[in-house]
């Protein structure tokens, strides 16, 4: 079933802001995007993760109608793209592949120019909306400067301001914190959170895991043109293994106890403390309760100095999905 069929999916299914079915984009022989089925729920902050060259930006270009799909269906805000481009895009704010501005115009001059290209934007409120958007990204002080004189971070902020010129239902932000200082990165995170709180769906692409972990509710992971995982952040994390870490001088005896409890001993990462025993809890939450494990350890005379149950970090999960190393996929 490749047909988009919102009626068949039924009322129980969550409403999707972005939806693709079997989306393929080829450049010559090479498939930059190789049959992905995205499902971004409305109101979500969707982190679109993947190493450089995994097809994130190409996917975004196709979603927004800048490039055409080789095959597959795309629906954005319940309308088919690119057929309904003219009625969808006014509700979509976007930052794609970095900011692009006229260097010889000022920041507000650039925003006025881009706003005037939108036939749905009211000219009467243009000046005010531009001022508000600049204020929102903290660029009011640089309003008089030509963009030529802007730093990369300032241009990035101006790009965000452009995406916020009008109230949007969907924001598509491609590497929004690129070139920003830590302060700017934090501001973007809080901006995204406040927009999401207001009901805007946010689609953020990034290769920075920490960033995605901190602001996203849902995650999709791209690798070599394929979507290798997607779902709520918590679900994706818990799909990874949980580990029990026991700090003890009696590592060997501890391992024995853990094995008896049905846990699989795991190698202690190289270079870490030798007085440690690690074991993997299979089946996620289904393992014995932590207090049971500790009681068993203590009953066996293991000197427990520390005990923790660790969730797999998103990074572990990411690496297990996309492979070690951030190799650029040719």
């Amino acid at each position: 079933m490749k047909e988009p069929s919102p009626t068949q999916r039924g009322a129980a299914a969550e409403e999707l802001a972005v939806e693709t079915h079997g989306l393929v984009k080829r450049f010559g022989q090479r498939a930059a995007v190789d049959g992905i089925d995205l499902a971004v729920p409305r109101g979500a902050v969707f982190g679109f993760l993947g190493p450089n060259g995994s097809g994130k930006t190409t996917t975004i270009r196709v979603l927004l109608g800048l490039a055409s799909a080789t095959s597959g269906d795309v629906r954005v805000l319940d309308q088919s793209m690119p057929a309904a481009l003219a009625s969808v895009l006014p509700d979509v704010g976007a930052l794609v592949e970095g900011p692009g501005f006229y260097p010889f115009l000022t920041g507000p001059g650039n925003l006025m120019r881009l706003d005037s290209a939108d036939r749905h934007a009211l000219p009467a409120t243009r000046r005010q909306r531009v001022a508000d958007a600049l204020d929102r990204v903290g660029l009011t002080h640089a309003a008089g400067k030509k963009v030529r004189a802007y730093s990369l971070g300032m241009k990035q902020r101006l790009g965000l301001a452009n995406a916020l010129l009008r109230p949007r239902e969907l924001l598509v932000l491609d590497e929004p914190t690129n070139g920003l200082d830590p302060q700017g990165t934090r501001e973007v995170r809080s901006l995204v959170r406040s927009l999401a709180a207001g009901g805007t769906t946010v689609f953020v692409s990034s290769h920075l895991l920490a960033e995605v972990e901190q602001m996203c509710t849902h995650v999709g992971v791209m690798s070599a043109g394929r979507l290798v995982a997607q779902g709520p952040l918590a679900e994706l994390r818990s799909a990874g293994q949980r580990q029990v870490v026991v700090e003890t001088p009696d590592a060997e005896r501890a391992n024995g106890v853990l094995a008896r409890l049905g846990l699989v001993p795991a190698a202690t990462p190289d270079g870490e403390r030798p007085i440690e025993a690690r074991a993997v809890m299979n089946g996620g939450l289904a393992g014995p309760a932590p207090e049971v494990i500790v009681a068993a350890l203590v009953a066996d005379g293991v000197r427990v100095r520390g005990f923790a149950v660790e969730d797999a970090s998103l990074e572990d999960r990411f690496v297990s999905l996309t492979g070690e190393g951030f190799d650029v996929v040719g």
Binding site: L85, A86, G100, F101, L114
Partner: peptide, 18 residues
């Protein structure tokens, strides 16, 4: 070249109109 083409089209300016 300036990168403004994609933002004009995303506004959306419309290709024919542009």
């Amino acid at each position: 070249n300036m990168g403004t083409l994609r933002y004009l089209l995303l506004a959306p300016a419309g290709r024919v109109r542009l």
